[in-house]
Nucleic acid binder design. Structure first.
Lengths: 200, 200
DNA sequence: TCAAGAATAGACCGACCGGTCTAGAGAATG
DNA sequence: CATTCTCTAGACCGGTCGGTCTATTCTTGA
């Protein structure tokens, strides 16, 4: 800790991205595609063009810590989408978030939402991972719930509808991946958005 | 093929279950809990009290064939639930199916629906598994869709609602597993059942 | 009783797993 | 320049993976 904590990006922050970030985004891509156990550290390292030493330097907790970090980053991204544009109606924001997800689904050849669910399966072997996913779901639900209350929904209705929306999105992404088509996700999204309208 | 095909259960079909069945149900339990990669052949073998030779005798295709067989069996079970009692309304049958699933979710300490989704993640490495899950979803959706049409829904509405129901159930089971509670699944089930009522 | 196939049994294999460890390159401090 | 610390680099490890292979036992029909 000789120098400050803005460190690493000291000399040139344009192209040669931080090794840590490279590892993280490589892990994200691979986990999304093959699940947790389906990806080896060597796969991540190869994709990130980094040696094993760097990995354990940046993530002393190893694979598990990488997984948790990936979940945290995804969650942060989604929450920021929901946090922005407070003025608009929730259903509008939801459609916007959904379109982003749809685009990702198509761009990644319908391989996207295995990540959370795959991590959930690790809960018994690696509690931290499972809990990271569980709290990610919880945070997202709470964010939607808060918006719905703000839109005028009663407390109970807001809670239930928020939960249903998350389930629909999750289930929709799953079926979309199975059918190799965004259509199911779009359907789920439409239904979810209508749930966020007053008077159903 | 010297003797007929009812074979194996020849001498006593009460307690000492067929080795193949033992392997299958052990695999089911373990896959459900730990996902596909999370379970080793040795785990399955130990749980089934069977040697490796038996496994490759009954499942020459190895782990992948076991996975496909498990998916097929689950699908068969669910479809038979939907097939039975054609007289009743779809929403009634759905509630019944859902209650069975709820019971399983509670009995297994909220570890149930990772199976399909975990297998889906194997699609790139093992297409057969992914396709088995994909067609399982498709079959279930078709079964519900057929019932809804029979209940008087228009073709398009039946198709969309059936798809939404499957998504809700899948998403609900996922969140239930994450929150370690059946409540989310029950909520999804309620919502799904109401989707199967005429006039929403 | 005996031959033949089904089924069981488990030693064994190379590949790969996640993780550890030592060594060196590079930048910042005195 | 020497020191110190961050970060990179990759050889290496024991363990486990899915899968193969060679017996041996059980069952069955002639």
């Amino acid at each position: 800790m000789a120098h400050g904590d803005d460190k690493t990006k000291a000399s040139g922050e344009n192209q040669p991205i931080d090794t840590r970030s490279r590892i993280l985004s490589a892990a994200f891509r691979l986990f999304r595609k093959h699940g947790y156990h389906g990806v080896g550290l060597n796969d991540i390292l190869a994709a990130a063009s980094a040696p094993k030493g760097s990995l354990y330097h940046h993530f002393p907790g190893g694979k598990e810590e990488i997984g948790v970090a990936v979940v945290a980053e995804i969650t942060r991204g989604i929450l920021s989408l929901f946090g922005a544009s407070r003025a608009k109606k929730t259903s509008t924001v939801l459609m916007h978030v959904g379109e982003q997800m749809s685009a990702t689904i198509e761009r990644t050849n319908h391989e996207i939402c295995t990540l959370f669910t795959a991590f959930l399966a690790e809960r018994s072997a690696s509690p931290k991972l499972g809990e990271a996913v569980a709290s990610a779901y919880a945070e997202m639900t709470l964010a939607i719930e808060a918006r719905l209350k703000q839109d005028g929904f009663a407390a109970r209705a807001a809670k239930e509808r928020a939960a249903t929306v998350v389930m629909l999105l999750e289930g929709g992404a799953m079926i979309a991946q199975a059918q190799q088509s965004v259509a199911p996700f779009s359907l789920a999204l439409k239904h979810a958005a209508s749930l966020c309208e007053r008077g159903d």
